[in-house]
Design a protein around this nucleic acid. Structure first.
Lengths: 330, 330
DNA sequence: ATGAAAGCGCTAACAG
DNA sequence: CTGTTAGCGCTTTCAT
C-alpha cells in the first residue's frame, strides 16, 4: 500500500536530463527534441511518475480546487446545486471540495475560513446576512454567493424570491382561494422575501396572509406543523410552504389527518426538487433552477479566476410548475 | 480581494522570535515562556496569520482531507452516504473532497487517480468489478470500498444484497403474490446478487422470477419501464425494483396507466431513501442504512490512517420497511 | 525553551 | 531546446 512515489528528480536522473526539463515536459510547456522526449516518456512510464500537485500548488499558488459550502446536502435543492457546479468544474478540470455546514450557523465561519485556504475560490451558501458577511471579503479568495448580496461587492446568483411566492399566490387566487396560509422557515434569510411576495399579491386582492413557522426546512418539520395549521381556528383553503420538503411533509400529515388533497386544501412548495413530481398528488411548486444555479455560480467563479471580473448578481426567473396539489377552491 | 497573507516569517519577525518557534507554537508542540507566548499571540492576532496548509502538507505528507467518490450525488442513497461520512470526518477534523463520477464508468479511474494525490485516503463507490479494480492497490493511499470486495485486500462496507431481496420476496409471498417481477438495473454489479436473493426465495416456493431491466437507476427510467412490465403478456402481481428511485418512477407511471396501487400491483424498492415515506402509497422497501454506511466507511478509513489496520468487510443488515405500496394479493 | 539550517517536490526566471 | 539556480511556506532535526 505505501509507496515512496518517485519525484521529479528521479525522473530527471533516469532520463538523463534536468528537473527543469521534466517539469516543462509535464506541463506541456514547450516542444522537445525527439530523443529527449522519448527518454522522458520512457522514464516516466517506467517509474510510474505522477507529479505532486501539492508541491506544484505551493509555487503556482493555485490548487485547481473549488470549495463549495451548502447548508445541508440532504436537501435535494443543494444536491442539484452540487451536481451543476460539479459538472462545470469537471469540464474546466477543477475538483470540488464540498463542505456541508449542516445548518449549523456557528460552524459556518470557521469552516469557510479553513476551506478558503485549500482552494482557489469558493461558492458559499450561508444563512448570514450581508452585514454579518463582511469577513468573507478578507478571505483573499474569489467568491460567489448563492443569494443576492445587496451591499457586498461579491458576485452572486439567486432567484427572485419575492416573485416566486407572488406567482404562487396569484395562482391560488386564480383558483378561487381566499384563505391562504404561509408555512415558512423563519431562520432562513429569504423567508421574509417570500412572505413579502405572497403578501403583496394577496393585498392587491384585499386579502391577508396567515403566517406560520416550521422549525426546520425539512419534511419532518412540515409534518409536525400540519396539525397546527389545519386544525387551528383559521383553517386555510391553501397553504404555501417555504420549500418543497416542508410541503411534502405537510401533505403526508394532512392525508393522515383525513384531509383529501387537493380538494380539502391546496399545497405549494418552492424549489422543484426532483421528488415533488413523484409525490401524490404531484406537488405544485416553483422551479428555481437549482442545477443551473450551481452551474452558473461555478462558471462565474471560474471566470473570476481567469481574470474576468464580474461583480454582479444574476437572478434566475422562477417558473411556476402547476401539478396536482393545487385545485380550484370548492 | 487579493491579499498577500502573512507568512510564518512575518510572524517570527513581528514577534522577534525564530520561525521554528512560531511553527512549534502553531502546532502546540510544546510549552513556551510567558513573554514569548504573549508576543507570539499578539503578533499572530495582529497580522491575522493563518498557517498555510499546503506548505504543511508538503512536509508532513498529510492533507487532512479524505476523498469520496460517488456514482451520482443526485441519488439520495449517496447523499446520505456523504452525510454520514462527512459527519465523522468533521468530528476528526478532516474535510471531504467529493467527486461525483456521474455514472460515467470510463471517467472513474482517471478521476480517482487524480483524487488520490490530493488526499490522505479514499472511500470509493465504483461500478468496477474486483478484477478491474486491482489498480486501486497501487494508489498508495488507504482505501475503503463501498461494497464487498471478495478478492481484494481492501476494507469495505456494504449490505447483504442477496438477503435484502430475499426478504422482500418473502414478504410478497406472504402477501399471497405468485406472479412476481424484478425490475433491475443490469449495469450495477450488485444487480445479480439482488436477483439471486429474490430467485432463491421464489424457487423455494416453486415459483420463477420475471426479470426486466431499467436503463438507469433513476425514477425516470422506472417510469419508462413501467408500461413494458405492466402491459406486457406476463403482467405481474408484484414488482420488485432495483432501488427506490426506479420504484417511485414506476409507481407514478403505473398510476398514470390507470392502475390502483397497491391493489392492482404491489411495488417495492431498495435503499429507503427519505422520500419513499412521503410517496403515496408510501414505499415498502429495505433500509440499507446509507448514512451509517458512510459513517462506518469514514471511521474505517480514519482508523486505517491512524495505523489500526482493519482489512475486512462489514456487512450491514438490511431491514424491511413495510409501508403502503405492498398489499395482500387479491 | 529557542534558533539555525536543511530541505519537502516542484516551478520560474534566467542563462546558455 | 535544455540546464542552473532560487525559492514557495513550512516542519524538523540538531544545536545551544
Amino acid at each position: 500500500m505505501k509507496k515512496n512515489s518517485p519525484t521529479i528528480r528521479d525522473v530527471a536522473a533516469a532520463a538523463g536530463v534536468s528537473v527543469a526539463t521534466v517539469s516543462k515536459y509535464m506541463n506541456g510547456a514547450q516542444r522537445f527534441s525527439a530523443p529527449v522526449e522519448a527518454k522522458l516518456k520512457a522514464a516516466i512510464e517506467e517509474l510510474g511518475y505522477r507529479s505532486n500537485p501539492l508541491a506544484r500548488s505551493m509555487i503556482t499558488g493555485r490548487t485547481r480546487t473549488i470549495g463549495l459550502t451548502v447548508l445541508d446536502i440532504s436537501n435535494p435543492h443543494f444536491t442539484n446545486v452540487v451536481k451543476g457546479a460539479n459538472r462545470v468544474a469537471l469540464r474546466h478540470d477543477y475538483t470540488l471540495l464540498l463542505v456541508d455546514t449542516d445548518e449549523n450557523q456557528a460552524r459556518e465561519r470557521p469552516l469557510i475560513e479553513a476551506l478558503a485556504q485549500r482552494v482557489d475560490g469558493l461558492i458559499v451558501s450561508s444563512r448570514m446576512s450581508d452585514d454579518e458577511s463582511h469577513w468573507m471579503l478578507d478571505l483573499g479568495k474569489p467568491l460567489v454567493l448563492m443569494r443576492r448580496s445587496e451591499h457586498l461587492p461579491i458576485p452572486s446568483v439567486g432567484i427572485d424570491n419575492r416573485l416566486a411566492t407572488y406567482m404562487l399566490a396569484r395562482h391560488l387566487l386564480n383558483l378561487g382561494h381566499r384563505q391562504i396560509a404561509y408555512l415558512g422557515f423563519g431562520q432562513a434569510r429569504i423567508n421574509d422575501e417570500r412572505i413579502r411576495g405572497a403578501r403583496e399579491c394577496l393585498e392587491e386582492a384585499g386579502l391577508t396572509l396567515d403566517v406560520y413557522d416550521a422549525h426546520a426546512p425539512t419534511a419532518h418539520a412540515g409534518e409536525h406543523a400540519c396539525s397546527r395549521v389545519m386544525l387551528g381556528p383559521r383553517r386555510p383553503q391553501a397553504v404555501m410552504c417555504y420549500n418543497d420538503l416542508i410541503a411534502l411533509g405537510f401533505m403526508k400529515e394532512a392525508a393522515s389527518l383525513g384531509l383529501k388533497l387537493p380538494q380539502d386544501v391546496s399545497v405549494t412548495g418552492v424549489d422543484n426538487v426532483p421528488f415533488g413530481e413523484y409525490a401524490s398528488p404531484a406537488l405544485t411548486t416553483v422551479d428555481i433552477q437549482s442545477e443551473k444555479m450551481g452551474e452558473l455560480a461555478m462558471q462565474k467563479l471560474i471566470d473570476a479566476l481567469a481574470g474576468h471580473a464580474d461583480i454582479g448578481h444574476t437572478m434566475f426567473d422562477p417558473r411556476l410548475m402547476v401539478r396536482e396539489s393545487t385545485a380550484a377552491c370548492r
